[in-house]
Amino acid sequence: MSNQSESPNPTSSSNKITLKTSDNEVFEVEEAVAMKFCTVKQYFDDENNNNVTSGTSTTLIPLPNVESHPLAILITYCKKHLEIKANNADNKKEMEIDMEHYEREFLKNVMPQELTELILAANYLNFKEALDFFCRAVASAIQNKSVEYVRKFFGLESDFKPGEEEKLREEFAWSFEGVDED
């Protein structure tokens, strides 16, 4: 897959960490990127504690629950995230603006279906920023939409017993005003 070998982040050490996905793709990433994935970090820390002499850069970390496609996207996102953070280390406001701009661009290239596997991968890797970001993206897609739209968007069917749905709709009647039209 995409092998991003150039290092945009000057603060990252030269240490590389190798990640192996469930479909046997191998990714080599900088330590700084891998450390953003708390699951990987945990694994790495445990490893280091167990044999102090290691310190080599040839650690291979298996990720049995992550496929290569979402991981590639997550790594790209993570690199950009670190880059923006490094560029605006002293200006938080500017960093947020840059980040928002990047996220907006980022979403243009992501299909709604991909978001599911991205969310699951980010959750497994315990990459909080990405998880929040993708969840926000899904949330904004259903923001102020009708129940029917949500069902269609998620490929769901109503499984209420008759009467249950009417009762809920009555209870939440205030939320059914001013539905977005799309």
Binding site: P112, Q113, L115, T116, I119, L120, N123, L131, D132, C135, R136, V138, A139, S140, I142, Q143, N144, K145, S146, V147, V150, R151, K152, F153, F154, G155, L156, E157, S158, D159, F160, E165, L168, R169, E171, F172, W174, S175, F176, G178, V179
Partner: peptide
Amino acid sequence: TGFVDLNQDMLHNVLKFVDMVTLGRAACVN
């Protein structure tokens, strides 16, 4: 094809970011 499925935890994560009106409607989905 829509979404496959988000499990309960992930759905919770998503619904953290919606407003009150959308949350009320979400209760009527299934």
